[in-house]
């Protein structure tokens, strides 16, 4: 085996170049200069021109660095102590201690089976790519999983277009801008937000973060974001740790503070399905009590049950459900009534 296997006229595949780059940067303690990388590492060296500007190759290297960092590989830049600020004197390396999965992170066969099932949850969503990569890395540990968990096919869909850009911004700690339609307002308003957490509560995705213009923490519903989410280049410091759990706790508190009394038709879908979530029920009277977080969201859900459920209290929910049913009834009224209007 000698270097002669890598024939210069051969087109080196991208993964080959990336793999060679990672190996080279892991093996160096002091770091490699960009010129050293481009002139020696496989995938670059074949195209390196000794007296040229190598501008294309430099751009290629910049993109490769970003790709590698996206995978969680700690590619570092070290400034030269003698020549601070000089880009040509920058050195690149991957410290092995920060690259290796720590020794204490080992999984049992049962845990491995559970992790595989957790990855299944994201089938078809953008998160499945991240789950898959994580599972590949974990398989590198060589632990044989227990038989896969059979009998389950869990799936969580992500249907808000705002989700993916927000997740990217969350990860990179970048400010976002979007138009937001607050309930009760007629027109959307532009918001600038430092995203701290994206949480799913009661089937709805929420964004929590700092509203830069209002100078305060706010929680937004992803479903009320109108149009595109723009990611700005402006970054911010790390969000307070565990903030996502605090927000979930707050939303739960909100849910418990709201209670609705509903009359449900005996033997109906509403009785069976809503009844299972009831915190209190009087079967003879056909009245159940449920907690809810958001009037608008709960009213949408109740409207779907049509005549099977009637809201007794609170009044705000009563009105909201009645208005929704009216909208649907009017939108589907016979053609002649449309002409009358």
């Amino acid at each position: 085996m000698t270097g002669s296997r890598a024939k210069p006229d051969l087109k080196i595949p991208v993964e080959d170049r990336l793999f060679s780059l990672v190996l080279a940067l892991l093996a160096t303690e002091t770091g490699l200069l960009k010129a050293e990388i481009l002139s020696t590492v496989r995938g670059y060296a074949e195209r390196y021109e000794k007296h040229g500007t190598n501008a294309n190759l430099e751009r290629q290297f910049e993109r490769d660095k970003d790709e590698i960092r996206e995978l969680g590989i700690p590619l570092e830049t070290v400034e030269s102590p003698d020549r601070p600020g000089d880009n040509q004197a920058l050195r690149y390396r991957i410290p092995k201690g920060q690259y290796d999965l720590p020794d204490e992170v080992r999984f049992t066969p049962d845990e491995l089976a559970l992790l595989a099932l957790a990855g299944e949850v994201w089938r078809g969503a953008s998160l499945s790519e991240d789950s898959r990569r994580a599972l590949t890395k974990i398989r590198g540990l060589g632990i044989e999983p227990r038989e896969p968990v059979i009998g389950y096919a869990p799936r969580l869909r992500v249907r808000d277009a705002a989700f993916e850009p927000l997740r990217v911004a969350l990860d990179r700690r970048q400010q976002v801008r979007f138009q937001y339609l607050k309930p009760g307002e007629l027109a959307p308003r532009r918001r600038r937000v430092e995203p701290y957490a994206v949480v799913l509560h009661e089937g709805r995705w929420h964004l929590h973060g700092l509203d830069v213009d209002a100078e305060g923490l706010r929680t937004f519903l992803l479903s009320r974001i109108v149009g595109q989410v723009e990611i700005s280049s402006q970054t911010f410091d790390a969000a307070p740790e565990g903030i996502q759990d605090r927000i979930l706790a707050e939303l739960d508190e909100l849910r418990l503070s709201n209670a609705a009394d509903l009359a449900v038709t005996a033997g109906s879908d509403a009785e069976v399905r809503l009844g299972k979530r009831a915190v209190r029920g009087d079967e003879d009277a056909g009245v159940i009590r449920l907690h809810f977080t958001d009037v608008a969201a709960f009213a949408d859900e109740l409207a779907a049950f049509g005549p099977e459920v009637r809201v007794l209290a609170p009044e705000s929910l009563r009105t909201a459900v009645r208005d929704r049913l009216r909208i649907v009834a009017e939108a589907h009224a016979a053609a002649e009534s449309e002409e009358i209007r």
């Binding site: 996206e70 969680g72 590989i73 994580a134 890395k137």
Partner: peptide
């Protein structure tokens, strides 16, 4: 050794 997970992968 196996590589660490990216923050988003975890």
């Amino acid at each position: 050794e196996a590589p660490r997970l990216a923050a988003r992968e975890a």
